[in-house]
Design a binder for these strands. Structure first.
Lengths: 180, 180
DNA sequence: ATATAATTGTTATATGATATAATCAATTGA
DNA sequence: TCAATTGATTATATCATATAACAATTATAT
């Protein structure tokens, strides 16, 4: 029975069998230094917007989980609570649409948020529900926002003064430009 | 953030909804116009880097599927083929690591790429495989790159001159800054 | 040289996010 | 009034990702 702990192995410099077999096909010099990860060059991938977006998003979301996630909120839940906080009384479909979530998948999300005691459904009429944050939900959201603001400050620091806002603007322009 | 409770308006029982019932809690004016989607304001979400990244990434990936996807390539497959093209002979684990893919999930990906006839495994020793593009794979990749370049040109146009490169740089700095 | 450790690829499996179809009740409007 | 629409829901399928376990092979350390 093997109950080993995940031992992190230090990698000694690798001895490469036949270096020539791994010769790079293209020259990496496009004016910028070659982008690599783990000693492997990414080639044209380094110039692709979608890939850069993906990796950055993963890194940022990972940061979210390590910080805001510690108090039990996932990114999607956070986004839902922010929208409800901003405009109490919205119907499920409205919130789901605004966030790009299928209303069918949104049901389970609201169920969970209700179970956690952070959100409640109030009957608007006999088929639609108005969504509201509970008192506990408001508290949770405040807590989460405080942590998130620190994260945003970190991004500010990483990117340099004013750059984060410029990034936000670019991302938004890209999004709406493509959805149009 | 406004954590004020009692923002709830009491509602008359059966009448038609009044617009006032959805009054927003916070004022949207933070120097910029309020960000909304489908008539619903996103509130603090509009200032959050992670959310902007997510939405932009979804939009760009959707563009990928509509264009490069038409010739049968998914984003992850494209990225794998680019890396193999750049450095033929890499082992599965090396490619997977560079792309942030679990080697365990990478197996099925390579199987599929082999089945499609675009990638082949060549035995390096009796446990490791060197990955190479087949001739068909090279052709497919060229085709895909040509389409993708047009997409990148589109992003360039949406963002304005030189801005796309700046975006790429920011995204990369954000990523490595967080992974450090 | 031999014992031990680490690497490589693999299968099986669990979880989470997302997408579609179908259903049902309630509401709206022609 | 009755057909069409809306809102919420369930069931289900797909896809991406994560972990555990394992077998075979190769590397290392004594």
């Amino acid at each position: 029975m093997n109950t080993d702990l995940r031992v992190k192995s230090k990698r000694p410099a690798r001895t490469r069998r036949k270096p020539d077999e791994r010769k790079v096909v293209e020259d990496g010099s496009r004016g910028r230094p070659a982008v690599e990860l783990g000693g492997v060059e990414l080639g044209d991938l380094a110039d692709m917007t979608g890939y850069a977006l993906r990796r950055a998003q993963i890194a940022v979301f990972e940061g979210f989980r390590r910080t805001v996630g510690k108090i039990g909120l996932r990114p999607a839940q956070f986004s839902v609570m922010i929208v409800i906080h901003r405009t109490p009384g919205l119907k499920q479909t409205e919130v789901a649409n605004a966030l790009g979530i299928q209303r069918t998948n949104f049901v389970a999300m609201v169920n969970e948020l209700e179970r956690l005691g952070w959100v409640e459904r109030r009957a608007l009429d006999r088929r639609s529900h108005a969504l509201h944050l509970t008192r506990a939900g408001q508290g949770k959201l405040s807590e989460a926002m405080a942590i998130e603001r620190k994260q945003e400050a970190l991004y500010d620091k990483i990117l340099g003064p004013g750059e984060r806002l410029k990034l936000l603007d670019m991302l938004r322009r890209l999004q709406v430009g493509l959805e149009a």
